[in-house]
């Protein structure tokens, strides 16, 4: 079962990052839980977490929202999502997730995040398989970004194999 306690760090991080990078103040919409596939919006940033919390987070948005965000970040009107603008949107996802993972580690869940992958194109179907997804839309003047969280407590942890405690030597 998806754990709601993982949600707040992402919502807080998104609020903080979008405020700092774009000046937009967010409003949190209604929380949802989905088990089926996610049918993509125009843009989806995908990042994974590995460690004491593991799974995948998506940030999805329509093209007008992406352009509004990038225009604010770059302080100039961006009319099309060229590679630089794509990179900016992905970076936004990266920074939000990084910040959320710091908050998660404060709560006792260490994790490492993957670099972002960007999915362009509406209508693809993404499945997180047996991970149910918590969905929270974040609304602001320029549009809406939706966070999809498919996370669970990890079996793995980030203890390096070289740091694993060696079992005590058996007595002979």
């Amino acid at each position: 079962m998806m754990n709601v306690k993982f949600l707040n760090p992402f919502v807080e991080a998104a609020f903080e990052v979008l405020k700092a990078e774009t000046g937009f103040s967010l409003r949190r919409g209604d929380l949802g839980l989905e088990k089926g596939v996610y049918v993509t919006e125009d843009l989806t940033v995908i990042l994974s977490l590995v460690g004491q919390v593991e799974g995948t987070v998506f940030y999805s948005m329509g093209m007008p929202t992406a352009l509004a965000l990038v225009s604010q970040m770059m302080a100039s009107e961006v009319a099309s999502l060229d590679p630089l603008a794509q990179s900016a949107v992905a970076e936004l996802g990266n920074v939000i997730t990084g910040r959320a993972s710091v908050k998660l580690s404060h709560a006792g869940y260490e994790s490492v995040i993957s670099p972002p992958t960007l999915l362009l194109g509406a209508g693809a179907r993404i499945s997180t398989l047996d991970f149910p997804r918590l969905i929270v839309p974040l609304e602001f003047g320029g549009g809406q970004v939706t966070i999809h969280l498919a996370l669970r407590e990890g079996r793995g942890n980030v203890v390096r194999s070289g740091q694993l405690p060696t079992p005590p030597r058996p007595e002979v």
Binding site: S48, E54, G55, T56, S114, L119, R125, T128, L129
Partner: peptide, 8 residues
């Protein structure tokens, strides 16, 4: 990470 599946 756990796998994510994209269909389409």
């Amino acid at each position: 990470s756990p796998p994510t599946l994209v269909s389409g």
